[in-house]
């Protein structure tokens, strides 16, 4: 008993230590975002700001008029990409799993094959294709190429293959078409898989840096990670502003994480176990 509680104390010690390691960088950034520049420049290491101020946040919103625009761009792209992915990946996954059509096997093979190809290889040709479409510097240039995701088509196929057939049989007897069955019966029951997708695709898109860097060159079209990087370029030694901007950027992702965190863990376990 005592041995057990001793080892428990030890484990708690480890967990708390690692929690500290995890949280301190965030807290330090948060604290810097409430400090005036003078306090930061003085090199003091107080976690609680000596002269607490909201001025940094205020400054960002008033002096960096594009900040809201970047936020908006990120939201449009991330939400748009997520919603379309949920729909299109599920549709394709369902077709591959359940519908017998000529070429079914071939397309499935092709999707598995492209899964092996790393994304970087497509970056530069994608840039050239978007250029010829005239889509550089537009939402379409960021959203359309990511409307579907081969990994999640694959995942959805695996999910639908194990899906009970009886429901579809019943729907067919009720006279529902494929389309109706899919939207009314199948999709509502695919929630866990959709949840996992939502989180991964949203987070991936929200945090993406390389693709927007290549596609968006007009500051008005930047997404937040690019804006943040540009902001850093301009306010190179103004760590108070940089940290405040970072905090604003991090909040939505953390909120979604808090919101969906259970599905998040499931989703990862799912992706790891496949």
């Amino acid at each position: 008993m005592t041995k057990n509680s001793q080892s428990n104390t030890f484990l708690y010690g480890l967990l708390i230590l690692y929690s500290g390691v995890t949280v301190i960088p965030f807290l330090w950034a948060l604290s810097a975002s409430f400090k005036p520049l003078a306090e930061i420049a003085s090199g003091s290491i107080h976690f609680i700001p000596q002269q607490f101020t909201f001025a940094n946040y205020q400054y960002i919103f008033t002096q960096e008029p594009l900040f809201m625009r970047w936020f908006f761009n990120s939201a449009v792209v991330a939400i748009g990409v997520t919603l379309f992915n949920l729909l299109f990946n599920s549709m394709a996954g369902y077709a591959l799993a359940r519908i017998r059509f000529p070429g079914n096997q071939f397309w499935f093979f092709l999707i598995v094959a492209v899964l092996v190809v790393p994304g970087q290889i497509t970056l530069l040709p994608k840039f050239l294709i978007l250029k010829s479409l005239g889509w550089l510097n537009s939402y379409a240039g960021l959203i359309v190429p990511s409307l579907v995701n081969a990994t999640f088509i694959f995942m959805m196929r695996q999910f639908f293959i194990n899906f009970p057939k009886e429901l579809e049989e019943a729907a067919a007897l009720d006279g529902l078409s494929r389309l109706e069955t899919f939207f009314k019966i199948v999709l509502p029951l695919a929630k866990p898989a959709l949840a996992a997708q939502t989180i991964f695709i949203f987070m991936g898109s929200w945090n993406e840096f390389l693709m927007p860097l290549v596609v968006m060159s007009d500051p008005e079209m930047f997404t937040l990670p690019l804006g943040l990087n540009a902001f850093k370029g301009q306010y190179i030694s103004y760590w108070n502003y940089i940290m405040a901007a970072s905090m604003i950027f991090t909040l939505p992702a953390l909120a979604i994480y808090a919101f969906f965190n259970r599905y998040f863990i499931q989703g990862i376990a799912f992706s790891g176990g496949k």
């Binding site: 250029k131 510097n137 060159s217 008005e220 690019l226 990087n229 540009a230 370029g233």
Partner: peptide, 20 residues
């Protein structure tokens, strides 16, 4: 007026290529 504050020349060259 647009301010480009990070990797200015990379951005300008990319935009010249992209004809934007």
């Amino acid at each position: 007026y647009e301010v480009i504050n990070s990797q200015y020349m990379d951005v300008i060259k990319t935009r010249l290529i992209g004809e934007v």
